[in-house]
Amino acid sequence: MANEDELNKWLKFLDPENLKGNLVFSSLFIASFEAFKDHTIETVKFFFNTGFINGEYTFSDTYEKDVKSKDKSVLKATLLWLKDMGAITTEDIAKVDELRQYRNKLSHELMALLFEGLPQEFPEKLADLILLRVKIEKWWTLNIEIPTNPDFDSEEEISEKDILTPSQIFHQLVFDMLSGDEKTAHYYQEEFKKRFKK
């Protein structure tokens, strides 16, 4: 006969709202980490883009020499390049590795987590992941995009607090949609319908 702990785990698992919540947030973290990885790698790679020939992008040899040669992992190599540029710190790189391991834990132990619930540290880990991406995006905007865009030549000095990044907007939208408040959760869908649906 099952003990009380096992019964409680089954009760949690069989609660539809609890199950949906655990699935949604586990998936959100996994997807967010993959998006962080892809975005970081591609943003830096395209900094070295030299053109588009025969249906393919071409890249400077400098990308191989200055970025990819830093580590066998393309993500780690990219992060090391960003550190050398002053965008992130050694501690940030260690945090990414920690978050990568956490992503693997969520992925590989998903069935167990659906029974036991998300770990207590989950909100902190998700916040760390979002903040790291925002940090890189803001640095990139301030140090790469603005200085190389003549449209900003006549602008007053822009600071980090003046920049709202795409990932900040996206994650705010997602969290609003997942909120328990029905009006907030459906706000964007209703506005979209008003503006675009005939």
Rank of each mutant, 00 (worst) to 15 (best):
K83Y: 00
A112H: 07
T78V: 03
F196D: 01
F59W: 13
D181Q: 02
E137P: 10
I146E: 14
E116N: 13
I144A: 10
E98I: 01
L131N: 15
D181R: 02
P150L: 04
Q189K: 02
S26M: 11
G51N: 08
L178G: 00
H108D: 05
K37S: 06
P119D: 13
K194T: 10
S154L: 02
A94E: 09
Y63F: 15
L178V: 00
V134N: 12
L28E: 11
K105I: 06
P16Q: 05
K125R: 15
E42M: 05
E155I: 05
K197V: 14
F170L: 10
P123R: 14
N54A: 14
I93S: 04
Y187D: 09
M85D: 09
N143H: 15
I88F: 04
L99Q: 08
L164N: 03
G180D: 06
L7Y: 03
L142S: 14
F175E: 00
L14F: 08
I53S: 13
S26P: 08
Q120M: 07
E34N: 11
Y57I: 04
Q168E: 15
K65I: 14
V174C: 09
Y188W: 11
L80S: 12
K197Q: 10
H186W: 02
F59L: 12
M1W: 03
W10D: 07
I41S: 02
K138W: 13
N104E: 14
P147K: 06
L110C: 04
Y188R: 09
N3G: 09
D61I: 13
L129N: 11
E155G: 02
D66Q: 15
T89L: 02
S167N: 09
N54P: 03
Q189F: 04
I53Y: 14
I88H: 03
W139G: 12
D151W: 13
E191L: 12
I130P: 01
L126W: 11
L75W: 06
F52R: 04
W81K: 12
N8A: 13
E191M: 12
T148D: 10
E157P: 03
K105D: 11
L19W: 01
F170A: 08
M1E: 07
N18K: 04
W81C: 05
S32H: 06
P147W: 05
L142I: 14
K76R: 13
T43Q: 05
N22W: 01
T184W: 00
M85F: 07
F59D: 12
L132I: 09
K197Y: 11
V67E: 10
F47E: 07
D92Q: 03
E121Y: 05
L23C: 08
T43C: 01
I130Y: 10
D61A: 15
K95E: 08
E98M: 07
F59T: 11
L23R: 03
T165F: 07
S179L: 00
K83H: 02
